[in-house]
Amino acid sequence: MAGKQLTTQNATITTATVEVKTLTISGKQVTLAVFRQLKKAPLIADDGSLNGEPWGIVNYHPDKCGDEDEHWHVVWQRGPELLRATIPVVPDFNRRNYNGNYYPQHTHKSQAANRYLEALVYMGLKAGGDTILPVRGPGYSDYRKWPTYEPGLALPAELAGTTDFPVVAVAGAAAVDAAEHAAHLRYLRQEAEKPLTPDEERRRDEWKEAHRAMYGDDTERTQALLGETLGKLRSRVEEWGGFDAVTDAFTQEIAEVEAYRQKQLAVREELSALPQLFIAV
């Protein structure tokens, strides 16, 4: 077999009586040395399609990768070339660590998701409702100095539009500030409407008077801050084309990601049915 070049012209697959498929070259079984000479090239394209025709799987690890995550070494054909590819059995977005938790690739993050979250915050505050951001504001006079939430918020499935994978988005400063001011303003109004005993009301009024003399009216100041930050947030959403455009872009992206992931799973289902090719030691 020395000096023989393995090509699609001289390589064949033969089947023995017990359905053992062997990879041969010019009628002789291919050796490990010849198999290692096959050029490595990706069989699965970026869009999830196949770059050529797969022949079968060789249960041999020429690159000393036997201890890595489960994978296949696939012999495949591209035009007149015979190539080999290493393909993980589980795609990156579905891999789990030793604790059984998904790797970060399972989570979808993008600029479209970030904009969608900010647009949701704006529309919620514009309507006078709650925001989905877990803010710190209510009850803290220095609430704007506190971190509001961890970097990244997992969108509920009904907003993400998918249950196949978590979608995590990050809100910008304008959205966070507006949500904080709205929460604090709601708290101030609730406190003002809370029923008190005459003595409690007198003490509250005395505290408010002293606080107002030193800092101004909290409700008016927070209302002004909310209007200012909400205006900044509105400008950002309008810059992106408005709420409907932001939502459409995000929805389309999620549909594309879902389709891509399904295609990656489907192609692996196809590869799992390939025959095992035996080669000589």
Rank of each mutant, 00 (worst) to 15 (best):
L83D: 05
A178C: 00
V30R: 11
R95Y: 10
A173L: 15
Y149P: 08
L155N: 09
Y260G: 08
E150Q: 06
P104M: 02
A245F: 03
R186H: 05
L153D: 15
R144P: 09
I44T: 06
Q262I: 06
G139F: 08
G139E: 04
T22L: 11
E118D: 12
A183Y: 03
V20A: 09
P104T: 13
L23S: 03
V18D: 14
Y140R: 02
D47M: 08
T219M: 02
T31E: 09
A266S: 02
A157Q: 10
N10T: 01
Q252I: 10
K39T: 13
D47I: 00
A255P: 03
K21I: 04
P91N: 01
R96K: 14
E253F: 02
V58K: 09
G231T: 11
P147K: 11
A174R: 03
V30Y: 08
R203F: 12
Y187S: 03
H211L: 07
E193N: 12
W207D: 14
Q264D: 12
Y149L: 13
V89W: 03
K194A: 12
I13P: 00
S272W: 02
P54N: 06
R189E: 10
G48V: 03
K40G: 06
A127I: 06
G161N: 01
G66I: 06
E258I: 14
V75S: 09
T31F: 01
Y60V: 06
L6G: 00
Q276C: 06
K194D: 00
H106G: 04
F93Q: 02
Q252M: 07
A45T: 14
D244N: 10
K21M: 15
L277R: 04
T162S: 05
E70I: 07
A113W: 09
L32Q: 14
E269Y: 11
D69A: 13
E193Y: 10
I25C: 11
L82Q: 08
V89L: 06
T24A: 13
P198W: 01
W72N: 04
E118P: 00
Q276T: 15
A16I: 01
D177T: 02
L38V: 05
F35G: 01
